[in-house]
Design a protein around this nucleic acid. Sequence first.
DNA 1: CGCCATTTTGAGTAAACTCAATTTATGTGG
DNA 2: CCACATAAATTGAGTTTACTCAAAATGGCG
Lengths: 267, 267
Amino acid sequence: MNMTDDHPLGLLVRKLESMGPVTGDERRAILDLPASVRVFPPRYDIFHEGDRLSQCCVVLNGWLWCHRSLSSGKRQIISLHMAGDLPDLQGLELPAIDYSLGTITESTVSFTPCERLLETAATHPRIAKALWQFLVGDAVVIREWMLSLGRRSALEHLAHLLCEICVRQHSLKMVHDCRCELPFSQQDTADILGLTNVHVNRMARILKQRGLITLDDKMLFIHNWQNLVRLCEFDASYLEPKLKFASMLRCTQENGPLHLDRQVQSC
Amino acid sequence: MNMTDDHPLGLLVRKLESMGPVTGDERRAILDLPASVRVFPPRYDIFHEGDRLSQCCVVLNGWLWCHRSLSSGKRQIISLHMAGDLPDLQGLELPAIDYSLGTITESTVSFTPCERLLETAATHPRIAKALWQFLVGDAVVIREWMLSLGRRSALEHLAHLLCEICVRQHSLKMVHDCRCELPFSQQDTADILGLTNVHVNRMARILKQRGLITLDDKMLFIHNWQNLVRLCEFDASYLEPKLKFASMLRCTQENGPLHLDRQVQSC
DNA sequence: CGCCATTTTGAGTAAACTCAATTTATGTGG
DNA sequence: CCACATAAATTGAGTTTACTCAAAATGGCG
């Protein structure tokens, strides 16, 4: 096992490798970056709206989200992040971050000083390119969420979210027997979907009644992937840029582009 | 008048200048990029969802938007773009663009081949940095829109949109006597806000009845900026990264950070 | 067991939608 | 310049979706 697998920024190296041959210089530049690993408890905000970003983080383990709130207290969750994500790339080079980053579950996160990361990007164009790809990959997901917020019904929106979570967890090899973790409450789900907790509860009941899913003990069980996908016209291709390298994060054997067919068959 | 003012990519040079001293090499690298200028009629889609981006564009004049649609035909507008914007940076390095870019009004747009822009960015870190800043500046606006879509009432959302448009037009020196262009229909507005045209009409009527605005002939007249801002708790600071350099796009004299006070007084 | 957070349910309300008709621009050809 | 066609804005009436408030049930945990 070489250094790439141990170092928290090893995944950046792997991302580079997915783009083409990597020079020793590039590899060294990344692995020489300081990376301090910290573990945060659940529901802990790592930074807040308005802060100046000084450290850029990589999620090694756990679930996190970015969120914003109105003065009335109404909260909107902007994005979900899992292992391999760089959730505060969005705030890099911003005078002040416009969102808060918080843990959902207990999470392990690696920090690198922004200026060091930026220096490395400035001297290694292909590293800069990889960061760019992370950034636009996240932006694609954000746009899909906007479409859901504006134009999908509550039921479709919930179904679509569950599909997305399932596919993203699947790429991390975290889905077993059509079961995956769903580590937040209906109130939290409401803050993702722009609804109330009561309405989320009712929409979830409909999905259960139709035999599509069950939810218990913070686990999502998808009984009928095909019908769930059909209900919300879920098309996973928007996740491809984001997942391109997630698939090689946890396993050495290549599993190619999203094999949804396989998932469909297994549900 | 030097070359910077004529060349369509002059604004990229100005962006660099706003970040610090610019070397002759950097300036030359940008101004050497091919840039073909084209004029498009209103309501013309420059590229479509699913296309591979080959040319990267800069808006020189006019209004454009990015939009996505569901198979049902429901449309969501993702972003608005005006002079100085680089609306398809979001699609750069993506295997396929996930949104369509279309003109609202007749628009003048400059095109540069993506690979040339990327080459230049790869060899000039500060140019890459400027592109990064454009990208995250747009992402901040997107997040504000998400918050509106999920958590603001229809009335607040409409008011917030009008405030944003006014401030962005103001930074381009396109607001005169509290009047600015609003070159799209109520149906279009509905597709921005995630509402129906009928409901937009009713919300607009409320704003008019309260003496905050009038709308006629595709022009927005803001009568009471202060109350409009108060209604939706508009805080323009989220636009700062995006506008940082717009303010120097059209005028040589520095006008500093957003002087909203001045606007308030004049309304 | 008792506490707390979360989920679930009910009943009434409000926000936003649908459908359809009417009025008001906008534009075009004669 | 008017007649006509077309698109957009406006209004009304009825419906649906989602919200609010409150209570009851459930589940995890010390």
